[in-house]
Design a protein around this nucleic acid. Structure first.
Length: 314
DNA sequence: TGCCAGGTAAACA
DNA sequence: TGTTTACATGGC
């Protein structure tokens, strides 16, 4: 698909029905699993016996995979389920890249941990969640929709809206007796009208935003490549900010979870405010000025700092 | 019950 | 340029 990152050649091994992805030393499968289990209402993957199951959309195909930790967590094992084992090397690479991107395996966390040692809040976070990665949303349309769906509502309801949206317009595949859902594609949504989303029970504005983003993407005016080619975080943020329904929070959220820009920073995030309030024992939520002061040392790790602090809440 | 949710656009000063 | 308000509904 479109998550072709520059990977070291030895970052994974191919074993026919299983791909073995090597992980950095600063990695904990269990911590990432804990994060993924934060909602019982997640509809895009399931977790059973410390393994993750999900369907991955490929160029013109689907792979259903089980993701688990190798003994001693030296590697992640990706096993293909049913008859979904892809034969073409390009598709196998696509799956490996997708999972590596999902778990953010290509980022070296050593500098972040080193910086966090002297930060009052991050030192606690790193100690509590050592090995956690910024679990991403590799699909740009999914990341944008999730950002829009989650605006101004509690996380539980956001998951409900996502489930309704996915089960109404996404694709499903059955494999080994289980049903797996995949997020709708822009072309599934762009032809719809606001009335078609009426059953989801969200604001008319949210419906308009989703349709608008789907249209921009089917027109090729909004892609991961265009955002990366913007050349800087600020320019990419500006590209997104100009789209109806996307403000500073959603822009930075998407640049953080999907484009993996390390300095992306959703500074207006209520969850971040609550985490800081909780950690520092404040009476009220911190002001923007206070957050800027507290985060002054996080340069180029703002996204990781935010992700770790969120873990204190959810 | 009422207030707050992993905000944004539009209206207004 | 900065501040206020409507938006819809669920969770607690």
């Amino acid at each position: 698909m479109d998550q072709q990152q520059r990977l070291p050649k030895d970052s994974w091994e191919d074993h026919i029905h299983t791909l073995k992805l090597f992980v950095p030393k600063e990695f904990s499968f269990q911590e990432n699993l804990n994060y993924l289990q934060r909602s019982p209402n997640e509809c895009l993957f399931t977790i059973r016996n410390d393994s993750i199951y999900r369907a991955i959309p490929l160029e013109d195909d689907v792979a259903v995979i089980e993701v688990s930790a190798e003994n001693h967590e030296q590697a992640i094992l990706v096993r293909f389920l049913g008859n979904t084992t892809p034969t073409e090397p390009s598709k196998r690479t696509e799956v490996a890249n997708y999972v590596r991107d999902w778990f953010d395996l290509n980022t070296d966390l050593v500098p972040f941990y080193s910086m966090a040692e002297t930060d009052p809040m991050l030192s606690q976070a790193v100690q509590s969640f050592y090995g956690l990665r910024n679990m991403g949303i590799p699909d740009l349309f999914e990341a944008l929709c999730w950002g829009i769906l989650g605006q101004q509502i509690n996380l539980a309801y956001a998951y409900t809206l996502k489930r309704r949206f996915v089960e109404a317009f996404g694709r499903r595949i059955e494999c080994e007796g289980e049903v797996y859902w995949m997020f709708p594609r822009p072309e599934d949504i762009a032809p719809l009208r606001v009335e078609d989303l009426g059953g989801l029970r969200m604001t008319v504005k949210k419906c308009e935003y989703l349709l608008g983003v789907a249209g921009l993407m089917t027109d090729g005016k909004l892609t991961k490549e265009l955002l990366l080619e913007a050349g800087s975080l600020k320019k990419a943020e500006k590209q997104l900010d100009g789209i109806r329904g996307i403000g500073p929070w959603t822009a930075n959220y998407v640049l953080m979870r999907c484009l993996r820009m390390p300095a992306a920073f959703p500074i207006d995030d209520v969850g971040l405010h609550n985490a800081i309030k909780h950690l520092l024992g404040l009476e009220a939520k911190p002001t923007k000025k206070e957050i800027l002061e507290l985060s002054a040392g996080w340069t180029n790790w703002e996204s990781y700092a935010t992700f770790y602090l969120w873990r204190f809440l959810y």
